[in-house]
Amino acid sequence: MNKEKIIRYFPEKLQRILEATDLSKLEEIRLRAGKRCALGIDGNNILLDCTASQAELEQTMQIISRASVYAYIEEIKNCFVTVEGGHRAGLCGRAVISGGEIINLIQISGINLRLARQVVGCADGVVRHVIGGRLKNTLIISPPQCGKTTILRDLARTLGGSRRVSVIDERGEIAAMHAGVPQLDVGEMTDVLDLCPKSVGIGLMLRSMSPEVVVTDEISSGDIAAITQALSCGVKVIATAHGDNFEQVRQRLKLGDVAGEFECIVLLSRKNGAGTIESVLKADKA
């Protein structure tokens, strides 16, 4: 992690504290208007002797958004901005609503810069199951915070080394695009459709980029038609879903016939830390 690049977004007084702090295990930096700044280090919340004013939060917001709120409005509407390096600034403030939809976030009251850490090779234990013999449609299942997206990103990176991979990155967490460039390695032959709903994006990428593999995160029941479309085109699908087991996911997402198309089911847990591979179920269709 480049310390200089992280701390430059923040007010000078906080920069001075951060310069003198060991940030090797830093997970997040939080600013709340009128409250003490806080660091998340190795799972602990540490309050600093430094208070951020609302004006300083607005200033930080301007620097994070490169004085271009209008250019990042789609992200800001979803309460985040992805910065250089793939780090994500979560935002809190007053939502501006029009027609029942949030159109902007103003009077920023909280900023949480969460540091992106790519774990290269974390999917090595899964790759042989996914690729072994031939590439399989794969569903990675786990409760939140178990490393689904990290494993998925590493799978995309591995597969993207030799195959045409399309990532539909609805929440911008897989590739962490910034100014049109993936900030995290998702593979040399990988195309990324950023911030597009999966239900629309999968079809768009099938037509425009002719992928061999579609990779997408946290599918819901509304995405099943698009996944069916990809499978019917002979395109392999690698996706993640929240859940404890395949049966639960099958019922909740109303997978129907699509359930049988997933030949490799990976279950993750936090038993030995995030990304622990609990089991790999294979239903070989060949």
Binding site: E58, Q62, A67, S68, V69, Y70, I73, I103, N104, I106
Partner: peptide, 10 residues
């Protein structure tokens, strides 16, 4: 007011 608001504000 440069750089602070949405498109309409700018």
């Amino acid at each position: 007011l440069l750089g602070g608001g949405d498109v309409a504000g700018q």
